[in-house]
């Protein structure tokens, strides 16, 4: 087993303020913190007040084709639209892309603030936290039960 750090999301606490988007885009800009544009952020908040959905997602893998697995998902009485949870930068939508279609992926602020992701730092409501989890090594067997 190995301990890894990750950014934990609590969707119940998110208020949709988008401070994380602002600081993320600013910290990855040139000059650092000098340019703000949430459109280029590597974290985006999906908001739907009608459904009471406030869902932050991080930019993840890059794919150059659209996928076919699209469905509406219902969790705890709230309906999430297609692509809601998807972290991919894909041709079907404009998010997680730099101008010129370069994909943007969350790098946990390794360059700008190692070990202390800025989106977590500015999230005063506690929707984003920097947490630890145990993952299995490749080929490792873990006793269960």
């Amino acid at each position: 087993m190995r301990t890894v750090k990750y950014i934990k999301i609590d969707t119940e606490k998110c208020t949709g303020c988008r401070l994380c988007e602002a600081i993320c885009s600013a910290s990855h800009a040139e000059p650092k913190f000098g340019v703000v544009n949430p459109h280029r952020s590597r974290i985006r908040i999906l908001k739907d007040a009608e459904q009471n959905v406030y869902y932050p997602t991080f930019g993840g893998p890059f794919t150059d084709v659209e996928c076919l697995s699209r469905s509406h998902i219902k969790i705890a009485g709230r309906e999430y639209g297609e692509c809601s949870f998807c972290r991919a930068s894909c041709p079907s939508r404009e998010i997680y892309k730099e101008t010129g279609d370069e994909p943007l992926k969350c790098d946990m602020c390794e360059q700008v603030s190692p070990g202390d992701p800025l989106c977590v730092k500015v999230c005063l409501v506690g929707a984003l936290t920097f947490a630890e989890k145990q993952i299995k090594e490749k080929g490792e067997k873990v006793a269960t039960g």
Partner: peptide, 14 residues
């Protein structure tokens, strides 16, 4: 809008 806003003194602003 998808344009950018610039800040004069980035470090100070942060």
């Amino acid at each position: 809008g998808t344009n950018v806003l610039k800040v004069a003194d980035p470090e100070g602003f942060y």
